[in-house]
């Protein structure tokens, strides 16, 4: 065991997979010599060379589309989109092509590509370096969307994504890159995609979240246990599409009081779907209306610190929402 940051865990996952299988390669902007603008591919260019860590032209649809083509040949591409906000030029390749390739070819062709992209705010990134993009892709059968909440999860989930036979969008919280550190096993740990993770058992309220927000939820749950004797049940979605419905239903029934947290804009978000699943299956188990804590429905968070802070879901907001629900 060694202590790794979230981004070190991601780098290590790619390094190990590239050592394990020669077919694995990386393509994206600035991923080569520079080692990525966040340094996620640091050292990989030196270790594996420019043919396996490819600096591409600045063109996102080509990064994904060329990756899909190489995957069809039999390679295992890891495509990096520098910021999740810039994934939009590649949406046609992701939704019309990667997501539908297996289905439209009646299981003949497939696209085992992993598309990594840093998402999330609170880093003075303004409108176009702060967004959460997962909801755009979260009604596209054929895709999988993974959003890790810790270094250990980031490593195990990314390795599973690379080995997955279908396309996976892997959104990494850019604030988590250096904020989160924990012990990560040196073994070849794979964390299954499609399964939520019960991170804390509790009896008073259930909180369901993912990504960096889940980390905050865990911290506050521990605080509330000592400060207010509120016992919180915490479920980490890990995979936000397709959702682990059974785990969601079970977690909601556990306490009958559910708070859902996302950093994304509220309407049409991942937690909207989680809320619908609970509403469909848990009506008679609920003791309070399902609560959603999310970003406001403005286009994206502004640059000015006052406005960014107002937009962001933070620990204070989460704590208050949890106390309110416990007292309901």
């Amino acid at each position: 065991m060694s202590v790794l940051s979230y981004i070190e865990a991601i780098q290590l996952a790619m390094k190990e997979e590239m050592e394990r299988d020669e077919k694995v390669f990386i393509l994206g902007e600035d991923v080569g010599k520079r080692g990525g603008v966040f340094r996620a591919t640091d050292g990989l260019y030196e270790q594996f060379g420019e043919k396996r860590v490819i600096d591409t032209p600045l063109a996102e649809s080509a990064i994904v589309g060329v990756g899909i083509g190489a995957a069809m040949y039999g390679m295992i591409p890891i495509a990096e989109i520098q910021f999740a906000d810039f994934i939009l030029p590649a949406v046609n390749q992701i939704i019309s092509e990667a997501a539908k390739l297996r289905y439209r070819s009646n299981n003949d062709w497939s696209s085992p590509i992993t598309i990594r992209a840093p998402y999330g705010g609170g880093v003075h990134g303004a409108l176009y370096h702060s967004q959460s993009m997962e909801a755009i892709f979260a009604n596209q059968p054929g895709l999988k969307i993974v959003m890790p909440s810790s270094p250990r999860d980031a490593k195990g989930l990314l390795k599973a994504a690379i080995r997955d036979p279908d396309p996976v969008l892997f959104f990494e919280h850019k604030r988590a890159y250096r904020l989160l550190k924990e012990e990560v096993p040196e073994t070849d740990e794979l964390i299954p995609i499609g399964k939520a993770n019960l991170v804390r058992e509790g009896s008073d309220i259930t909180v369901i979240s993912y990504g960096l927000m889940l980390h905050y939820v865990k911290e506050i749950a521990n605080e509330l246990a000592t400060e207010k004797e509120i016992d919180v049940h915490v479920l980490d979605l890990r995979t936000v599409y397709p959702l682990d419905q059974a785990a969601i239903i079970q977690a909601a029934k556990q306490t009958g009081k559910v708070l859902l947290v996302t950093e994304d804009n509220k309407e049409g978000s991942i937690i909207s779907e989680v809320s619908a699943i609970i509403a469909e299956h848990c009506l008679f188990d609920l003791d309070a209306p399902i609560q959603r804590l999310a970003g406001p429905d403005v286009p994206a968070m502004p640059y000015a610190p006052t406005l960014e802070k107002e937009f962001m879901v933070n620990k204070d907001k989460i704590k208050q929402a949890m106390i309110d629900l416990a007292l309901f």
Binding site: I68, G69, M72, P77, S96, S105
Partner: peptide, 24 residues
């Protein structure tokens, strides 16, 4: 023969990806 879709020209990056894989 790569599978094609209806949105035109998406096949060009795919073919380039195959070319990249051939070269690799």
């Amino acid at each position: 023969m790569l599978s094609g879709s209806s949105p035109v020209t998406t096949q060009v990056p795919h073919a380039v990806g195959v070319g990249l894989a051939c070269q690799m």
